[in-house]
């Protein structure tokens, strides 16, 4: 919006990554964050395996773990924590919380990452096109960005999710979240491209007879990579939160699929009768969002010292 002129960032390259590694050594919080992200990423990739460790499937009922005469509250302390159920069970169904939170990580993070990927690809493409080619392309794309950003996005996402009933919910959520995210990236990239466009080395390449695609790929793209990476990392928490919000409002994943948002939505009302049920998914959401924010901050400091605020 008000990106006046952004000074050149450290170009993606050896220097930048060395700086990232140095930063990593310096900050403990960053190490912890990375560990958290790696842990949840592992959970995402190997959810069935890790989930199987506990011995329960995410959709498997355990009638013996809940008391139907108390509205299906888990039997035992801490929401039914036992050797059998490591994190306790869900009230009413007796489904294993460990299995569900692990599989929920898969769904939540998959949606967040995939939506981020869409946003990055679309945003970079649109931003470069607008910035590099200028003229009519710029005018049209900028209008489109303004228009998209004028949409009340959450309201629209909720509505779109509730319109399509039969579609693949996960895929739909990815697309819908992606649809409203791209203008942010596009603006960053556009500004960056504008400032790179007339750099000496780009001019040199042009004089040297390189075509526009070659220039884009070889000279401009690496130049915008830094800020985009930083911006993207900071965007992931928002994506996770959006998935949670949609699932919370009941327009997210389809039962019995678990996702963190769905788990939080159903557990909020149990906060005083079964706090464990509510705390487990909430803490997971909190930790992941926190970790990505910290990593994003660090990356921004290194890769894009003055950017990242559109």
């Amino acid at each position: 919006m008000t990106t006046t002129t952004t000074p050149p960032p450290v170009h993606g390259g050896d220097g930048a990554w060395r700086a990232v590694r140095a930063e990593l050594r310096r900050r403990t919080s960053l190490k912890v964050s990375l560990a958290v992200v790696v842990l949840f990423a592992l959970m995402t990739v190997a959810a069935p395996l890790i989930g199987a460790l506990g011995g329960w499937g995410p959709e498997e009922f355990d009638k013996s773990a809940v008391d139907p005469y108390l509205g299906g509250l888990p039997i035992g302390p801490l929401g039914g924590v036992s050797a059998e159920h490591w994190l306790g069970v869900e009230p009413i169904t007796g489904r294993d919380l460990f299995a569900r939170v692990v599989h929920g990580a898969q769904v939540s993070l998959l949606i967040a990452f995939a939506a981020t990927a869409i946003v990055v690809v679309a945003g970079v493409a649109a931003g470069i096109a607008a910035g590099y080619f200028g003229g009519r392309a710029d005018a049209v794309l900028s209008r489109l960005m303004d228009l998209t950003m004028s949409f009340p996005s959450l309201i629209f996402m909720i509505a779109m999710m509730s319109v399509a009933r039969d579609a693949n919910r996960t895929l739909l959520m990815i697309l819908v979240i992606g649809l409203f995210g791209w203008p942010g990236v596009a603006r960053v990239v556009r500004g960056q491209t504008l400032s790179l466009k007339h750099r000496e080395y780009v001019d040199a390449a042009r004089v040297g007879g390189s075509g526009p695609w070659r220039i884009l790929a070889r000279d401009v793209l690496p130049g915008v990579a830094g800020p985009v990476i930083a911006y993207t990392t900071l965007m992931v928490p928002g994506m996770i939160a959006t998935e949670a919000a949609l699932s919370y409002l009941g327009v997210g994943v389809r039962p019995p699929t678990p996702s963190w948002g769905q788990m939080i939505a159903e557990s909020v009302a149990y906060y005083d009768t079964d706090p464990m049920y509510f705390l487990v998914p909430s803490l997971c959401l909190f930790l992941t969002v926190l970790a990505f924010t910290l990593i994003g901050d660090a990356l921004r400091d290194v890769l894009d010292p003055r950017g990242g605020r559109t």
Partner: peptide, 11 residues
Amino acid sequence: LRPESISKVLT
């Protein structure tokens, strides 16, 4: 009565 309140009432 909401299902999550049942235990609070019956006890």
